[in-house]
Design a protein around this nucleic acid. Structure first.
Lengths: 134, 134
DNA sequence: GCTTGACCCTGTAGTTGCTACAGGGTGCAT
DNA sequence: ATGCACCCTGTAGCAACTACAGGGTCAAGC
């Protein structure tokens, strides 16, 4: 069961360049080469890359993914660290949601206040300029 | 009323480097120089930079800000374009909120399922690995 | 008048997480 | 043998800044 980089990419919905990038930054280790210097992947790499992609989809940064991978390799260890990492990320996501919600309210109010007309009297432009003197 | 770049930065909560960056990419035009080749700003630049920072705070991209600035300079024009831009951005923000909310639900479920123990039996790690065979 | 320190200048490289070439080599089918 | 899909390396680009390095300027205090 040897995969080329293209096959691995298709299996994990990952661009070939992205896989090479992960290798370059040390998130994936360099795989074996076969025949004409092509990368050759197996089951293990498929699992690892799937893990990475799933974590990325959940919004973990590459550094967080790196930490999760390291932790997950040490199966005997207490999973409190993993839990803390996930909880931290969750808190971050919740903060972002709150920020965006505030933004959304402001934008909605801005858009609502526009009743057409010219830019000169546009409430949106007005809302952006704090002191449009003149 | 001439401002140095540092004063302008303090007045608009903008780092000096950021102001120079905005000038480099043409968002701010090059100001006059005074004395020993220092940039010298006036009321107009203060207003323009405030506008930019406010729009950025509201999550508009620099390209969107550039468009808004161009539109706001033409005060006789119909403000429908401004409205469309703001509405488009609002829709984008709302999409982001929905995405993050979905993420939040998944992360919360993941974190909830962790009841301590070792990494080997950690539900979080399990949730990330789709097919951790073996 | 000379030093100290805060400020200013230019130019370049780093950040995150990829993506997109350019300029080649390989493998398989026709 | 020739086309085509795929692979290789290396480098540069995206957003939107940020952070230096290596200098020049200016006002105050001694």
């Amino acid at each position: 069961m040897a995969l080329t980089i293209g096959m691995l990419g298709r299996a994990t919905h990952t661009k070939v360049e992205t896989i090479r990038y992960y290798e370059r930054i040390g998130l994936l280790s360099a795989p074996g080469r076969s025949g004409g210097n092509y990368r050759s992947y197996g089951e293990a790499e498929l699992g690892r890359l799937s893990f990475i992609r799933r974590a990325r989809q959940l919004g973990f940064s590459l550094d967080q993914v790196r930490a999760l991978l390291e932790l997950s390799d040490d199966r005997g260890r207490d999973c409190a660290t993993v839990d803390a990492l996930a909880r931290g990320h969750l808190a971050e996501v919740e903060r972002k949601i709150a920020d965006l919600a505030a933004l959304q309210r402001e934008l909605a109010a801005m858009v609502d206040s526009c009743h057409g007309g010219t830019v000169g009297s546009c409430r949106i432009i007005e809302a952006l300029g704090p002191t449009r003197s003149d």
